[in-house]
Nucleic acid binder design. Structure first.
Lengths: 162, 162
DNA sequence: TAGAGTGGCTAACAGTGTTAGCCACTCTAG
DNA sequence: CTAGAGTGGCTAACACTGTTAGCCACTCTA
């Protein structure tokens, strides 16, 4: 399913089409259904990959970091900005967990939970903040002139001393 | 455009279709183009309405509130949960500001900016947190058992004392 | 009274996900 | 070695989507 991922990364979600994907594989669209149950399953496969990548980014970020929460936040933001289409696909809609590779969501969540000392409320609040900052930036909701680094610092300050 | 809004509220974004809207108005789809330039303009009109509603909710919430930030957060969450389709439409994608009713976005943003003492970084961080919490809840990303009130409290604590 | 503007209409196009049904190939069981 | 099943391609088609072209009737105004 690396073809699907390439399509998404290069041309955005509008290009992730059964026919476009089939084209890229030298096949006709209906033949895809011999391998996938449908578009939802295709997206779920891409999302599963995305979670694995995010987990790796997180694990790399916390390894030996003096400030794990800050490192996770930076890694999260970078992930969103570098792979915006994938990030949106992963977060935009309710997750079809039944179609997802098992354990992949938990693995991505683990480093944050560890960084907050297993304080679930704190972890959820920090995640919400990071997701909000990232998706609002991706969607161009902040003014061009906004100092987003300052907003990140401001937010993280509140999560660092429980 | 109250018909569009009804369609969205009652049946979700998948039902907000040019043909469905035309049906509801006793018209054929192409005739809509005599009044609107296309679907983007239709969505922008609905979004403009949404911003006005959100602004009213905010203005009502801060009026005489002892804790303006907490009141805004509660109003924000309530807005998202009560009108999930509208909320998603308003936040999910980059804004077509050129199609939006003028001033409506600023009006909705004003109460938060006031509540943070015009600290823009703080306002953006608080907004990102509230949006993250709301959209993650809407998308079913938190576990069923999660104590979201605790997460909201946890997050707001960090924004309250600058 | 002519002309312009308004707002409806049908027909059509290119695109979407998806299904039905057909056909060739390969692998395995007897 | 051959029969049968399974695999993985195919075309044709359906019901949708947003959108355009072109036509036609009505009303308002000069």
């Amino acid at each position: 399913m690396t073809a699907a991922r390439a399509l998404l990364d290069e041309e955005g979600p509008g290009a992730l089409t059964m026919r476009r994907l089939a084209d890229r594989l030298g096949i006709r669209a209906p033949s895809l259904y011999k391998h996938l149950s449908g578009k939802e399953a295709l997206e779920a496969a891409v999302i599963s990959d995305g979670f694995a990548e995010l987990a790796e980014a997180f694990e790399g970020a916390v390894a030996g970091a003096a400030d794990p929460l800050g490192a996770l936040a930076a890694a999260y933001r970078r992930f969103g900005l570098e792979k915006p289409h994938l990030y949106r696909l992963m977060t935009e809609r309710p997750l079809r967990r039944d179609l997802l590779a098992s354990g992949v969501e938990e693995r991505a969540a683990a480093p944050l939970l560890a960084a907050t000392g297993r304080d679930e409320a704190l972890a959820r609040a920090a995640w919400a903040f990071a997701h909000g900052m990232t998706v609002l930036e991706l969607n161009g909701r902040f003014p061009e002139s906004a100092d987003l680094d300052a907003a990140w610092r401001q937010g993280l300050r509140g999560f660092r001393r429980p």
